[in-house]
């Protein structure tokens, strides 16, 4: 990293701007700094792919839940006590041997926070956002996922109100495994659709 200025105490203008905005909002009683702290902690420690993994594992072991999940994602996910901002309209898309689903937000960074947490850097990257639509098979192969030529790839753009979650295929070798064990196998990347679950 190069420093154009050598001032020891020079601040990032974005940090100054953020602090100024926070002060103004707090001074007006619109929010409190404690509320900000709580939200940061929530997204750093509580809200993440473990929630989505619970949803997937339940769908794998409970056919009636799976049917409800595919019919109305938001309501079925709420059954497990999971919900919140960016999860108001959830649609769950199911991977099968014939169809592979992958999610993207072409215009910005829309992502199903309640089930996956905040998006990884690559999801927000202009290259992923444009290329996965244009050449999904190539992008997926760069993630190490090679699809059969006969498998149809569906790319779901989350830019509108809907947030998607991929229901990955359950590995054949997990017959008889319980929900808890299965949840441990489910990865964030599989629920975005850039990986398969091997077991």
């Amino acid at each position: 990293m190069t420093h154009e200025h050598e001032h020891e105490h020079e601040h990032d203008p974005r940090a100054i701007r953020t602090e100024a905005l926070e002060r103004l909002l707090v001074d007006q009683g619109l929010i409190t700094s404690a509320a900000i702290d709580t939200i940061i902690e929530r997204y750093e420690t509580d809200v993440g792919p473990l929630n989505g993994a619970r949803v997937v594992a339940k769908a794998w072991t409970d056919p009636e839940y799976r049917a409800r999940l595919l019919a109305d994602g938001t309501t079925a996910i709420a059954e497990l006590g999971i919900g919140g901002p960016q999860g108001e309209k959830m649609v769950v898309v199911e991977n099968t041997p014939a169809v592979h689903n992958v999610i993207v937000c072409t215009l910005c960074s829309c992502y199903p926070w309640p089930v996956l947490g905040l998006p990884p850097a690559w999801y927000k990257d202009p290259a992923y956002r444009s290329r996965v639509v244009r050449e999904p098979r190539k992008v997926l192969s760069e993630f190490g996922l090679t699809l059969d030529d006969n498998t149809e790839v569906r790319v779901w753009d989350s830019s509108a109100e809907i947030r998607y979650l991929v229901l990955p295929e359950r590995p054949a070798s997990t017959t008889g495994a319980d929900e808890r064990t299965l949840a441990e196998l489910v990865t964030r990347d599989a629920m975005i659709g850039v990986a398969r679950i091997d077991a």
Binding site: E44, P49, L50, A121, T187, D189, D198
Partner: peptide
């Protein structure tokens, strides 16, 4: 940064900071 396999970990342990 992208473990394709392995258990879904809490956000902090996902291999990248939020």
């Amino acid at each position: 940064l992208l473990p394709a396999n392995g258990p879904a970990a809490p956000p902090r342990a996902n291999g990248e900071l939020v």
